[in-house]
């Protein structure tokens, strides 16, 4: 399975331009700031990175009939699914970890820090669940059919982002800033992170079942 992860992680790195932009902003932020809108932007970019890497990797597999190749080799469906899920988890943990590291290093105000850690972690959970449901869809319907829905999911995420964080990105909008601050203070969100992890494990089990029963290899 580690062989699979290694090969597929190379596919993830094909998504070079967004990765480059993420790193440029990251290091710019690392040396210059600690401002919330940029942080929100980094979160959004983390999503773009996870979803884009996944799509690029699957597009590469589709182009090369990667699943047919794996179907011949001594690899189980469970290992294939595990490698994909571990890779999504790794990518999300990496970008979320980087974002939070940046925050802790740069943010002076404890109130702001608390809220931004919440945003960073919950956004990580969103990315994780997005990756899981994308893979279930790809295993069930195939990559080509799933890409048709990609923009739909992307729009949902964008709407969610603007709804919850619009006030921070565009100060003055005043959608629900107070509610978000209150929610961050309540610490209820701390339960959402492990809950997201549990849901991710559950989606992994579904993905294995879907892959094992899907028509194509």
């Amino acid at each position: 399975m580690w062989k699979l992860i290694r090969v597929q992680s190379l596919n993830y790195l094909r998504y070079l331009i967004p990765l480059g932009i993420f790193l440029i902003f990251y290091f710019r932020e690392f040396y210059q700031g600690g401002k919330l809108p940029v942080f929100v932007f980094l979160c959004f970019w983390a999503f773009l990175l996870v979803s884009g890497s996944l799509t690029t990797s699957e597009s590469y597999e589709e182009k090369n009939n990667g699943y047919e190749i794996l179907g011949i080799l001594p690899v189980t469906n469970k290992e294939i699914v595990s490698s994909k899920f571990i890779l999504v988890l790794g990518t999300v943990m990496l970008v979320t970890g980087l974002n939070i590291f940046l925050l802790i290093l740069r943010t002076k105000s404890p109130e702001k820090l608390n809220m931004m850690i919440m945003i960073g972690l919950l956004w990580g959970v969103v990315c994780l669940l997005y990756g899981a449901q994308m893979y279930i869809g790809i295993f069930k319907f195939g990559y080509n059919r799933m890409t048709k829905y990609f923009w739909f999911f992307f729009l949902i995420i964008l709407v969610l982002l603007i709804f919850f964080l619009g006030d921070f990105i565009f100060p003055g909008l005043n959608i629900n800033k107070q509610a978000v601050i209150k929610f961050a203070d309540s610490r209820i969100w701390l339960f959402l992170v492990p809950a997201g992890g549990v849901l991710y494990c559950y989606l992994y089990k579904i993905a294995v079942r879907v892959k094992e029963t899907s028509e194509e290899v």
């Binding site: 990667g66 047919e68 011949i72 001594p74 690899v75």
Partner: peptide, 21 residues
């Protein structure tokens, strides 16, 4: 025993699938 079985099987299909690049 899928893994063990495929370790002991050689397969050549009608279409040849390889990473093209």
């Amino acid at each position: 025993d899928e893994k063990e079985m495929k370790n002991r099987i050689g397969y050549v299909g009608e279409e040849q699938y390889f990473y093209q690049n």
